[in-house]
Simulated assay, not measured.
Amino acid sequence: MEDNSYNKSKPIGIFDSGVGGISVLKKAIKILPNENYVYFGDSKNAPYGVKTVEEIKKLTFKSIDFLLSKDCKAIVVACNTATSAAIEDLRKRFKDLPIIGIEPAVRPAVNLNRKGKILIMATPITLAENKFNKLVERCAVNSEVVALPCAGLVEMIEEGIFEGNDIKNYLEKRFEGKIDKDVSCIVLGCTHYPFIKKEIVYIIGDEIPIIDGSDGTARELKRRLKESNILRSSDQKGYVKIFNSKDNSNLIDLSYKLLDLE
């Protein structure tokens, strides 16, 4: 039987267009605490949500190449926009590499079985992509789904703005006329958005459930590692290394701060 211990000790690569994917990294560490992780945020080119599909593909492949240079055994594309634009091409290029994407948590939203429409916050390009439309058609046949494009929100979060009047004013304008008794839940369709969940609750109240796709992505990661027999066998807590394309130590500090945020 082949000794797979070397491959098992290799890190998992997690990529996002900025600091947003830290929300997925947090969930992965919670579910798989003994794994090693390398995180890469492409904040230099954020936000991806305003770029063309071809630009997003090019940037995503470049970021994955960086993670592979760190000898990663699996890749998590912790960015809804990059997943929508590039995941199929990535899997064609790297056929033997476990590649896990993230998508808006439409199915979990439907499974709540709450009366009313499902409100999905996401970047404009995620909502415009065919992958999103197919997801809604597949998972929400009998549900009313309302897309809420949030242009400019990622930029604020990349600047380290997670609370305060700027975020509150932005959310109040976005939710104006959208929040009523007919809303069953809100889906956070961008990995940056969980970091402003407190401010969303402040605006809409705590009676409407707010969900995101990070839990499902982390569980799928565990399943794929197990399937490939590359789960790390050590009982020691793994390491986390964070890199960013923007030459700015503040972003690295912000990333570690978000990782420790409860």
Rank of each mutant, 00 (worst) to 15 (best):
F94P: 09
D96C: 03
F66H: 02
N130R: 12
S143V: 07
G213L: 10
A128W: 03
K70Q: 14
I125A: 10
A78C: 08
E88V: 15
Y170L: 05
A46V: 12
I120E: 07
D89N: 09
V187C: 04
R232H: 15
K62N: 10
C139F: 14
N142P: 09
I161V: 14
T52M: 06
L67C: 03
A74N: 02
R107L: 09
L97C: 05
A28I: 04
I179S: 00
I204N: 08
F66R: 00
P104A: 08
N142L: 10
F175L: 13
F243K: 00
N244P: 07
E158V: 01
G216A: 01
C150E: 09
I200Y: 02
A85R: 02
K222A: 12
N45K: 04
S249Q: 12
I203D: 07
I203K: 00
I210A: 06
E159K: 06
Y39N: 07
L231I: 10
D42Y: 07
E144K: 11
F195C: 04
N130Q: 08
I179M: 00
A151K: 11
Y256K: 13
P194T: 14
G160R: 00
E88K: 15
L90E: 01
F15E: 00
K246M: 12
R138I: 13
I204F: 06
K131Q: 10
K51N: 10
D42H: 09
H192K: 09
P47I: 10
E172F: 15
K57C: 07
K237W: 02
Q236A: 14
M156G: 03
I22M: 02
L59Q: 01
D65R: 05
L254W: 15
E158S: 08
A85F: 00
L225F: 07
L231F: 09
G160H: 01
A28V: 05
I186H: 03
L153P: 01
S233M: 15
K257R: 13
T191P: 05
A46G: 06
V77M: 01
F15K: 02
P149I: 02
F15L: 04
E54S: 01
M1D: 12
V136S: 03
D212M: 11
N244Q: 07
E155C: 08
V38Q: 05
D206C: 13
V187Q: 08
V53I: 15
S214G: 06
Q236K: 15
A151T: 14
K30L: 15
M121D: 05
D247L: 07
K178F: 14
C72V: 13
Y37A: 02
N133M: 00
E163D: 14
I99S: 02
K178R: 08
I12R: 00
L68A: 00
K8M: 14
N45G: 08
E199Q: 03
G18Y: 07
V53R: 13
K198M: 15
E227S: 03
L231C: 11
S143P: 09
D166F: 13
E262H: 10
F132M: 03
F243L: 01
N142C: 05
K181Q: 13
G49M: 07
V187T: 08
A105L: 06
